[in-house]
Structure formats: structure tokens, C-alpha cells
Simulated assay, not measured.
Amino acid sequence: MMEWIPVVLVTFKLLVLGAGMFFAIKWHYDQGKKEKEKKKEVRAVLRASGNAAVVFALSLLGLGFVTFALGRMLDLDLTMP
């Protein structure tokens, strides 16, 4: 009986360490995957923010042109003093 204890304990130790290494490698792999997805999300948010800024600037410019056109149509004095 005594000669089986080292065999059982070494086998158990190898199983536990093997499972630990497997899950450590899997965790690191998943973290790398998350980081890549996070970078893609950041790019998408920046692209959407840029698009919103461009749309806002163009809308503001268009509103200015419409305002001046309406002012001229109504014969308002739009000259700078």
C-alpha cells in the first residue's frame, strides 16, 4: 500500500498542474481576443463621433446659408457696420 502513495500523489499533482496550465493559457488567449475586440469598438466609436461632428458642422453651415438667403429674400440689412 505504501508504494502506491507516491504514484497517486504525483499523478494527482500532474493532473492539477496540467489543468491549471490549460486554464491559464486559455485565460490569456481570451484576454488577447477581448483586447482586439475592444480596439475595434474604440475605432467604431471614434468613427461614429467623427461622422456626427461632420454632420453637425455641415448642418450648421447649411443653416447659416439658409438664414442669409431668407434675410436677403425679406430685404433685411445684413451688412456689417
Results as ranks from 00 to 15, higher is better:
77 D>H: 00
35 E>T: 03
65 F>P: 01
47 R>Y: 14
65 F>A: 03
52 A>C: 09
70 L>G: 03
80 M>S: 13
62 G>M: 04
57 A>R: 12
53 A>M: 08
71 G>D: 02
58 L>D: 07
78 L>I: 07
68 F>Y: 12
38 K>H: 09
69 A>P: 02
59 S>E: 14
41 E>M: 13
46 L>C: 08
76 L>M: 14
49 S>C: 08
40 K>I: 12
36 K>P: 00
35 E>I: 01
58 L>K: 05
54 V>Y: 06
48 A>D: 10
55 V>G: 01
62 G>T: 13
53 A>V: 12
36 K>W: 02
57 A>N: 09
80 M>Y: 14
70 L>N: 05
44 A>N: 05
70 L>I: 15
62 G>C: 13
62 G>I: 06
56 F>A: 15
36 K>S: 05
45 V>I: 15
54 V>E: 10
38 K>T: 14
49 S>F: 09
48 A>V: 07
57 A>Y: 07
64 G>V: 08
44 A>E: 08
69 A>H: 04
48 A>W: 03
53 A>C: 04
53 A>H: 07
36 K>F: 07
64 G>A: 05
66 V>C: 05
74 L>Q: 06
33 K>Y: 11
51 N>L: 14
44 A>D: 04
78 L>S: 03
53 A>R: 13
50 G>W: 10
42 V>F: 06
72 R>I: 15
63 L>I: 11
75 D>N: 12
60 L>E: 10
69 A>R: 05
64 G>Q: 02
49 S>Y: 10
62 G>S: 09
45 V>Y: 13
78 L>A: 02
44 A>Y: 06
80 M>N: 13
48 A>Y: 03
54 V>G: 01
63 L>V: 08
39 K>Y: 11
42 V>Q: 05
35 E>W: 01
74 L>A: 12
61 L>I: 13
70 L>Q: 07
62 G>V: 11
79 T>Y: 04
45 V>R: 15
45 V>W: 10
37 E>P: 01
64 G>E: 03
66 V>H: 02
68 F>N: 02
63 L>R: 00
73 M>A: 15
80 M>A: 10
73 M>I: 14
75 D>M: 05
43 R>I: 10
49 S>T: 13
49 S>R: 10
34 K>I: 15
42 V>G: 02
80 M>W: 11
